[in-house]
Simulated assay, not measured.
Amino acid sequence: MPKQIKLNPLSIYIHIPFCVSKCAYCDFISHRVGDFEINGGVEAYFNSLKTEISLYSGLLEKSKVRSIYIGGGTPSSVDGKFIHNLIMQLKSLANFSDEIEITLEVNPGTLTEEKLNHYIASGINRISMGLQTTNDQLLHKIGRIHSTNDFMTSYEAIKRAGIENLSLDLMFGLPGQTIKDIENAIHLVGILKPKHVSAYSLKIEEGTPLSESYQKGSITLPDEQLERDMYHLLINGLAEKGIMQYELSNFSSASFESKHNLVYWENEAYLGLGVSAHSKLNNERFSNTSRIYDYSKLLSEGKLPIVEKEFIDTSEDLFESIMLGLRLNKGVSINKLNQKYNIDFNVKYANALENLLKQGLVILTEDILKLTIKGMDLSNQVFLQFMED
């Protein structure tokens, strides 16, 4: 009987840097798709992606791919055939898990029946769509080009196409947002019954139009207490709808946690493809150039478009495992950390644990360390306690 080759688990992120219009709060690497379609730049980018995938063929052949996440930008802003061809190429090179999760980010108003047919044919089985808020005035204020009605139309089209695993994005802490806005969003979630919800607090990123408006004083944000009240309302309100928090910003029905994002939070291996994509493999972290021209040029020369690479030493990897793991409601397993890093966790972090327990920020059992509700609000303070000098 031939010896079976052990395949290494791998998750893949693919960055599609095109949107119909850039949101006012977004600092991701993205460009208006219309500016690139005119001279064939979109197709050229996907040809570069195909080349990058080919250069990783050796790695892919030895891997069991358990999740693929196609993000951006707005991947649904481009022709569906491009997405389909990428997944088919990966399928020809790698071994796909029987339970593989393939997620595509979409925005309302960018879907067509033809695109959905391409997605279904390629094996996409999870859609993540940005709702953000049900207040259309707020949507306009943050630069979103859809309305709540547009969202509903797209949501219904996805369901009709047969994709049941839908995730919605919500935002809180928006300019002028109220508790009533959060209640309305929760109410809509209860009607739609998605399998997953991601809820993020607005962060004003330097260099964005929203940052400029904030600096000028033309917008005001909810104060810290109101922002926290919105967060706790989301936690409790979604739980009442059967969508339970499993990570600081993520909620799901039973067994519908994001497999791909769990790879990040459990500090496991992932490969990033596309402009500005990041990877973590074999104790190395590396990232691609953020310039589309440089990305394509390097690949045309047969070179990977990596511009930064760093070795992750054991102490850094341990800290990341603790920090990322504590984001999960289930917390981190002390036994697993002890075995993986050859440490005695309770001894190594005795002072940190004493301080955190005294402040009511963590719960410690024989094997599990996790955040309290108070610890979730002050999570960054908790993480710093485990950082070594």
Results as ranks from 00 to 15, higher is better:
97 S>A: 11
127 I>N: 08
333 S>C: 12
328 L>V: 11
91 K>G: 05
388 E>S: 14
106 V>C: 06
153 T>V: 15
31 H>I: 03
61 E>S: 15
303 K>F: 11
66 R>S: 08
101 E>R: 15
329 N>S: 11
312 I>R: 06
205 E>Q: 14
191 I>Q: 15
160 R>P: 03
343 I>K: 00
105 E>S: 04
202 L>T: 08
170 L>P: 06
170 L>E: 08
216 K>L: 10
169 D>C: 06
279 S>N: 10
234 L>A: 04
238 L>C: 09
333 S>W: 06
361 L>Q: 02
291 R>P: 04
52 E>L: 02
42 V>W: 02
158 I>Q: 01
381 Q>F: 08
321 S>N: 12
195 K>I: 07
87 I>S: 00
120 I>M: 13
234 L>Y: 10
65 V>Q: 11
333 S>G: 10
349 Y>G: 01
100 I>F: 12
387 M>N: 13
179 I>N: 09
80 G>T: 01
93 L>S: 13
151 F>V: 01
3 K>A: 09
318 L>G: 03
354 E>N: 14
91 K>W: 04
183 E>K: 15
37 E>F: 07
196 H>S: 01
21 S>V: 04
202 L>G: 14
341 Y>R: 05
260 H>L: 14
16 I>Y: 00
244 M>F: 14
291 R>Q: 11
59 L>Y: 10
293 Y>S: 14
235 I>Y: 02
9 P>S: 11
81 K>E: 01
28 F>S: 04
228 R>E: 07
136 D>L: 02
13 Y>K: 09
213 S>T: 04
90 L>D: 01
107 N>G: 00
112 T>P: 01
101 E>T: 13
276 S>W: 09
219 I>Q: 07
204 I>R: 08
83 I>L: 05
257 E>F: 02
303 K>R: 07
213 S>F: 10
212 E>P: 02
281 L>H: 06
42 V>A: 03
381 Q>C: 05
125 N>D: 10
30 S>L: 04
223 D>N: 15
38 I>A: 13
370 K>C: 08
24 A>Q: 01
314 T>Q: 14
313 D>N: 10
257 E>M: 04
124 I>S: 09
166 L>D: 02
76 S>Q: 01
16 I>R: 00
184 N>M: 08
357 L>S: 03
